[in-house]
């Protein structure tokens, strides 16, 4: 066993047990249902803003776009507009493709031996496939949760639910995104557990969020399909949070729900301090958001402060008399 993922798994299990015992045994419904979610949101907002504002201060001394194609050059050389963007518009399109389609993961390759002892690079699609499955299903799941946080339920949430549950399997209606989220997260985890090269470069900070998200997905699916909780009470609690009139609904909700909520609170509060900050970072990565036009335009680090210079003319001005005395030639008499 590898300690990095063993410890992460144990951490998530312990967190789950804390929430379960806290509510079922110690009766801390208010702590886990109201106080911790609000705290998590505050930590998230402040932490996120702090991180991004810190990034705004970092210097960008050079243009460092990573390019995957021919840069703009002479007219008769074909320019690859989105892999080596020249204008802001092209950069925007490149960014959109990156953010919406995770294009850089699509370019994943693996090195190995081809025929004989020849090095060969093989295109490997799995990382992109698992990642896009994971990200989009997570996005849909988050959006669907607005049914608990908004009354009346916005039209796009009902619309998503309709598409998500279009196969009408099981009762309550199976939402595909929930299963795909769990599947995607598990596949991403398996990559990091089974491929030796990935295990070697993985840290607890890589495993912990994955286990946490798997925990969220598992508890969420359990609450809907196996050990059902009363959704009406869940919505009462969520609406209380969203309208700033928090309270624990009459009759209480089962411990499983609080485990789910605690996991989500931990994840939300953890985002600003973790790799999940890539949600903000992707917009600010200079290897993606800068145009490759250094041959045409001079790049000045926008964070440059005015440097105090002392030119030769000024130097000569200061010491002209002494230079003349010593017989050093001067430019201006």
């Amino acid at each position: 066993m590898n300690v990095a993922y063993l410890y992460s798994l144990i951490a998530v299990v312990v967190l789950g047990l804390i929430a379960y015992a806290g509510v079922e045994a110690a009766g801390l419904d208010v702590l886990f249902g109201v106080v911790i979610p609000y705290l998590a949101l505050i930590v998230f907002l402040i932490g996120f803003a702090n991180k991004v504002l810190d990034w705004t201060k970092s210097a960008v001394p050079f243009k460092i776009p990573t390019t995957f194609g021919q840069q703009k050059s002479l007219d008769w050389i074909k320019h690859n507009r989105f892999d080596s963007p020249y204008t802001t518009g092209q950069v925007v399109i490149r960014m959109l493709l990156e953010i919406l389609l995770l294009r850089s993961l699509f370019k994943n390759t693996r090195v190995g031996f081809g025929k004989g002892q020849r090095i060969a690079y093989k295109w490997v699609v799995w990382l992109w496939l698992f990642a896009i499955l994971f990200h989009y299903s997570f996005f849909v799941v988050v959006l669907r949760h607005l049914r608990f946080f908004a009354e009346p339920v916005p039209f796009f949430v009902s619309f998503l639910e309709k598409i998500d549950g279009m196969f009408q399997i099981l009762l309550p209606n199976l939402f595909l995104s929930g299963v795909l989220l769990l599947g995607g997260a598990l596949l991403l985890l398996l990559r990091r557990v089974l491929l030796p090269k990935l295990v070697y470069i993985s840290k607890p900070a890589d495993y912990f969020p994955l286990f946490l998200i798997i925990g969220i997905a598992v508890t969420g699916l359990m609450m809907r399909y196996l050990d059902k909780v009363d959704v009406v009470r869940v919505k009462e609690l969520a609406m209380g949070l969203a309208t700033l009139q928090p309270g624990i609904p009459e009759g209480g909700i089962s411990g499983l729900f609080y485990v789910h909520l605690f996991f989500v609170s931990i994840l939300v509060a953890y985002i600003p301090f973790s790799k999940i900050m890539h949600m903000g970072g992707v917009f600010l990565s200079p290897t993606r958001n800068l145009a490759n036009n250094t041959r045409a335009k001079r790049h000045v680090n926008p964070w440059n402060y005015p440097v105090k210079t002392h030119t030769y003319e000024e130097y000569e001005e200061d010491f002209r008399d002494k230079m003349k005395e010593a017989g050093i030639p001067v430019e201006k008499e």
């Binding site: 607005l146 946080f149 009354e151 919505k235 609406m239 209380g240 969203a242 309208t243 009139q245």
Partner: peptide, 19 residues
Amino acid sequence: VLFPFWFNLIFGAADASTA
């Protein structure tokens, strides 16, 4: 991110936290 807070304030009913 704060969609639920302002959405309920503008469009929501007053007693939405009781089912």
